[in-house]
Amino acid sequence: MTLAELDKPTMQRVLTRLAVEDFLHAEAALLDAWDIDTWLTLFLPDCQYEVLPTSVEPNPDLSSTSTLFLIGDDYERLTQRVLRMNKKTAHVEYPHSKTRHIYSNIRVLREDAESVTAAANFVTFRTKNKITTYYPGSFEVILARTESGFMIRRKRIALDLEALIPQGKVSIFL
């Protein structure tokens, strides 16, 4: 949250944050279970799922239309990514690696009647072929309020790395 957000009535602030935390913890659990078909249902059709490049300083104006991101998916490409990761021919994730997503420092940045924008720190562990690597970073999510609860409009992930050393790849969902 921003310092200005702290001026809001405590109860409202905390309840929004708890609702966001519940949602994000459930999202992380789907990923760690590799239930990516269900995970995909959390996204809106106009969504963006992005992993920023490690070689460029993160800033809100960065766009995958003018800078090479690590991942810059719209709903169509994200769907294709999920389809691919369920196939045996997605060799990098066959068999699926073990992952553990740890989210922390969850803050509500902005909220209105339509949506909540929240940020979190994270570290995600990936184990494959007896080697464990980890991905530290932060993400920002825009969660739309819908009749069936929160849906993800955007998840933008910034890794605290200068290069994918030693991770080598982003083959898991962050």
Binding site: S55, L68, I165, Q167, K169
Partner: peptide, 10 residues
């Protein structure tokens, strides 16, 4: 174009 990729391969 911005966004050089740099990664390890074993």
């Amino acid at each position: 174009i911005g966004g050089m990729q740099e990664y390890y391969i074993n």
